[in-house]
Computed example of a mutant assay.
Amino acid sequence: MSASDLSSRTVLVTGATSGIGFETARQLAERGATVLVHGRTPEEAQAATDKLIATAGIDAGQLCGAAADFTHLEEVEAMARRVVAEHPHLDVLVNNAGIAAPEQHTLTADGNEIALQVNFLAHYLLTCLLEPALTTDPGGRVVNVSSSLHRTASIQWSDPQRARRYSRLAAYAQSQLALTVFAADPRVTAVSVHPGVCETELLSLYAISGTPAAEGAAHVVRLCDPATEIVNGAYYDCDQRIEPAQAATEDRTVKRLSKLADQLTGHTT
């Protein structure tokens, strides 16, 4: 397989209806991959696939919609069951969906701080539930779209929901640190990547201007390519592998986070 040919690959991209996720889905499909396009609702997922067909000339046979609102963990579970049933061989999972934490402390119906759940816990649960489908063949992997802001974060173990002291930036950064730590979980072959500061709905957290989302997506797509060799837990800033925050590579932190995530999602191994 050449580096430009992904025609034998099946990839699920979360948060694929806009921004980096949409551009990641487009670039993967343009290189031949079958792409599961995730949206919060079936209608949003269908609209994204229709746009890919109309604007990028993607073959409809390469695209499949997948829907789940990540503020409801039961929807994540239902989507995972459908994916395993319909796509028993999944080469890559791109955990991309994300939101900026709101100004006011907000809990989901599951009782979790909303940024922690959407940006990390839902992806943790999805990854665990997709294990039967995620291939162990060479090149199979999970790509977590994280953030350089993980370096500013700490996980509040005694108050992960940040009920006692809430800051939207700290809540967002905590979710990104958790996602980066999760890449080092030995149960999965995974990397995390900061795709750069891009013109997306999250731009206000970083700067007043950014690069096009397609440029950030290119860094994600490179890590989806089996020609790109990876080391479990590696962290990339755009296309450069660098060391993440120290906490992201500590075995104790990885194990502690896994235990916390299992508790908060109700997942049992």
Rank of each mutant, 00 (worst) to 15 (best):
M1N: 11
M1Q: 12
S2M: 08
S4Y: 02
D5H: 09
S8K: 12
L12Q: 09
G15P: 12
G15F: 13
I20A: 07
G21H: 10
E23W: 02
E23A: 11
T24V: 07
A25N: 01
A29Y: 05
R31A: 14
R31F: 02
G32T: 10
T34P: 00
V35H: 06
H38W: 08
P42G: 06
E43W: 05
E43H: 06
K51R: 15
L52P: 10
I53K: 09
I53R: 12
A54H: 00
T55N: 09
A56W: 11
I58E: 00
A60R: 13
G61L: 08
L63T: 01
G65F: 03
G65N: 09
A68Q: 07
A68D: 03
D69H: 02
F70L: 10
H72L: 11
E77I: 13
E77F: 01
A80H: 09
V84A: 06
A85V: 06
E86L: 14
P88N: 04
D91H: 14
D91F: 08
N96L: 13
A97G: 11
A97H: 12
G98S: 11
A101Y: 14
P102S: 05
E103W: 00
E103K: 11
Q104D: 14
Q104V: 14
L107H: 06
T108H: 07
D110W: 04
G111I: 01
N112F: 02
I114S: 05
V118S: 03
F120K: 07
L121E: 02
A122H: 05
L126Y: 04
L129T: 08
L129Y: 07
L130Y: 07
E131M: 12
E131V: 09
E131A: 14
P132S: 03
D137Y: 01
P138M: 03
P138F: 05
S147V: 04
H150L: 07
R151Q: 15
A153E: 08
S154K: 12
W157N: 04
S158E: 15
P160R: 02
A163E: 14
R168T: 12
R168G: 03
A170V: 05
A171V: 01
A171N: 04
Q174H: 11
Q176F: 03
A183L: 04
D185I: 01
R187G: 14
V188D: 03
V188F: 15
V191G: 05
S192K: 03
V193W: 05
V193Q: 09
P195H: 03
G196Q: 10
T200A: 00
L205I: 10
Y206C: 01
A207M: 04
S209H: 13
S209R: 15
G216Q: 08
V221R: 00
R222K: 12
C224D: 00
D225A: 06
A227S: 13
T228G: 06
V231W: 00
G233N: 11
A234K: 07
Y235T: 08
R241Y: 00
I242Y: 05
E243S: 15
A245S: 15
A248R: 00
E250I: 08
R252W: 12
K255Q: 15
L257M: 13
S258Y: 07
L260C: 01
L260E: 00
T265C: 06
T268H: 14
